[in-house]
Design a protein around this nucleic acid. Structure first.
Lengths: 167, 167
DNA sequence: ATAAACTTTCAATAATTATTGAAAGTTCAG
DNA sequence: CTGAACTTTCAATAATTATTGAAAGTTTAT
């Protein structure tokens, strides 16, 4: 497999995986392209490489910046803007976990808590609703906490030994 | 908040959350409905409650069964089929983690491994591609392993103490 | 074997989501 | 201040994904 083929395969695989971490295809592909690039890329570069429109590129770059995954870089002597992505996978994981927690998990936890706090009228169905939403709330909260803590370990000695221990 | 309102809120919240764990809205809503039901439900029951068509109900129930989350139950003296979902959240988490790993993560790991194994031609860009895909592969593999191991702890003493430790 | 009761399939359609591209907006060098 | 270089916005359109409903299929009771 040659470089170009490998590169395309990576971008398309990562792109289709976007849904797994909650972003769209173009967004994931732009990130993938930046992730394996050896230098900052301009909007022009990205449009050409991925064959997507200017508007699409602009909107998705903005979203990636909102996530905190991509940033603008100044390139000496150039008028236009250049972009780079976070290159450290550990840091990338940290950002993604934190953002997904904030955007998706926390709001759901809030709703689950509300629901599991409705007045118990002692009917079987109300009892079941309370019991099950509570269980879901607690599980989700624990999962969220664990993921964030693990991903936040500065040194990943804990992660490493945990992994060894759990194997 | 009354039962009916709470129930609807739960179903719609869980439904819109479907994307988070990789299934569609109707599928997630059916699962949610079964999850808080005190008894097995028929296709008719589900269609009526969620106001979705017969075909949609049938297809999504089948998918839920493929995932191993929903099963058919026989109700004495009834001709039609009834359905129930796994009620234990721990077990639910186990099934979901395992299925997502199998369907989505494992295939991506395979591709990442292939790509990170291309011949190193000593150009900077090839070196970067190899380095970054390798880093991504290793991180993803570790995350996948950890999630599965944690979720599989029969007794969750480990999870509990881990949580306490990490807090 | 028949027919009623039920489920599945799938082509058509609807709903949702992503993408384009041109116009409007911004920035900056001269 | 002007205009070239660049970016953003957004209505129109395309692509994708979900849903319907009726016909075909299956099962079961008699």
């Amino acid at each position: 497999m040659e470089y170009q083929e490998a590169k395309e395969k990576f971008i398309s695989t990562w792109g289709s995986l976007g849904s797994l971490w909650g972003i769209n295809k173009a967004m994931a592909q732009i990130q993938a392209l930046l992730f394996i690039s050896t230098k900052p890329l301009s909007m022009e570069d990205i449009m050409e490489d991925l064959k997507i429109s200017r508007g699409n590129t602009s909107m998705n770059l903005r979203q990636l910046m909102d996530w905190g995954i991509v940033s603008k870089t100044l390139v000496a002597g150039e008028r236009k803007e250049f972009f780079t992505t976070e290159k450290d996978v550990q840091e990338l994981a940290r950002i993604i976990a934190k953002e997904r927690s904030r955007r998706e998990i926390k709001p759901v936890l809030k709703v689950l808590k509300e629901i599991s706090s409705i007045k118990d009228d002692n009917t079987a169905k109300t009892k079941e609703l309370i019991k099950q939403t509570k269980a879901l709330h607690d599980l989700s909260e624990n999962a969220d906490t664990m993921v964030n803590k693990i991903v936040n370990q500065e040194q990943n000695w804990l992660t490493k030994s945990l992994l060894k221990f759990l194997k």
